[in-house]
Amino acid sequence: MSGLVVDAVSVEYVRRGASITALDEVSLTVAEGEIVALVGESGSGKSTLARAVAGLVETAAGTILFDGVAIPTRGRKPVAMVFQDPLGSLDPRLTVAAAITEILRVHRLRPRAGERARTAELLELVGLPPEVAGVRPRYLSGGQQQRVAIARALASEPRILLLDEALSALDASVRAQMLRLIMELRSRLGIGALFIGHDLALVRQLADRVAVLQLGRLVEVSSAEEFFLSPQHPYSRELLAAVPVLRRT
């Protein structure tokens, strides 16, 4: 099968000598051009799943394939992660251009002569003005920093973005801009995304399908329409009932 296929993946952590199951035989697919949201409370295993896909944590069982091939643990991957805190994932000493060029060089994606043009292209893609190329990340706004993090993720030409609470720390207005950016990247690049977020209102705007994790197990995978209109699992209903809505009365 094409796209990302997570099949019966388990992840275990050892804490104080005891083994804790963080993910319990989770199976999920993300096709190219598809946005799948992973929802659930803290500790449900959302980030662990994204990290397992990115090869950042070891799996105890199961397989993770992209287009039928195992995702390499080193080197260029068909997936790229974007985290909640852009400053935490950007080297403070590197300018925006240098941070992006680094990725192009590591993976030998462009000859030296083509680096500048590609960097400019990536900045344009994420809606950043060319001037930010020479700036260090701390001088940018939170939204701009997150755009840089996305540009950097896109530099390795992934087919699936793993967005781990990538919009959670942003102001509503910036979040609305980023929402549009993700939709645009999907239509321009045909890229897919595994979107992790606790904001279900955002999931409603963005996702084609929703996967619900509870204590390391998938309890529901449905189309976004089904999930929001007729959630099947009691835990899904509990999550939806808790969403703060604008009280208009």
Partner: peptide, 18 residues
């Protein structure tokens, strides 16, 4: 700010950034 609150009922209307 009000227009930035996503509408849970319809996914079609993306919130309008300022």
């Amino acid at each position: 700010l009000l227009q930035l609150v996503p509408d849970m009922r319809s996914p079609a209307a993306l919130p309008e950034p300022i």
